[in-house]
């Protein structure tokens, strides 16, 4: 009887010890993951701030074909707290003239741009070397923009 009770206590002790070790391991792993997540969140790009400024288009895709913006052409996009302006020189391949509108940010990286009666959704991605890739699916246009 005493033997059985001893065995039971030993089992409970072992189970408690194992559980504690597992909990400690899970806590360490969780803390490491949380630390990495917080660090990457701090380092992550804040679209609402980082897109503000004047951008020169260096390359664009129109209808799945690539075009380089040559030196004598000018295609610029100016983004400033809720307002967006697009300008294309008279000899520009796309976006000739001036276009103005407003934008709101949706889902962290998508701009909903309203220009007159038109509404576009533009997804923003920053490349590794700081270019802004703007994909306007409604127009089948992808712009690679370089900050001025």
């Amino acid at each position: 009887m005493a033997q059985a009770a001893k065995k039971k206590i030993k089992l409970i002790y072992w189970a408690a010890k194992t559980t504690l070790i597992l909990v400690a391991l899970i806590t360490i792993c969780f803390s490491v993951i949380l630390g990495i997540m917080i660090t990457s969140y701090k380092d992550s790009i804040d679209i609402s701030k980082d897109i503000i400024g004047t951008w020169d288009c260096v390359q664009f895709y129109k209808n799945q074909k690539s075009f380089t913006v040559s030196d004598n052409q000018e295609i610029t996009v100016t983004i400033d707290s809720g307002n967006v302006k697009m300008h294309g020189s008279d000899n520009a391949s796309i976006l000739r003239g001036d276009h103005s509108g407003t934008y709101t940010i949706e889902g962290g990286s998508v701009l909903i741009v309203k220009m007159g009666e038109d509404s576009w959704s533009c997804s923003c991605v920053f490349t590794q070397d700081g270019l802004l890739r703007l994909t306007i699916s409604e127009m089948q246009v992808v712009l690679y923009l370089k900050k001025r």
Partner: peptide, 20 residues
């Protein structure tokens, strides 16, 4: 090219053209 995700890379051709 530079890997940006496990299955996605940013590519820069020799002539400067970019694509994903």
């Amino acid at each position: 090219f530079v890997w940006t995700k496990a299955d996605e890379a940013e590519v820069t051709y020799n002539d400067g053209t970019r694509c994903t």
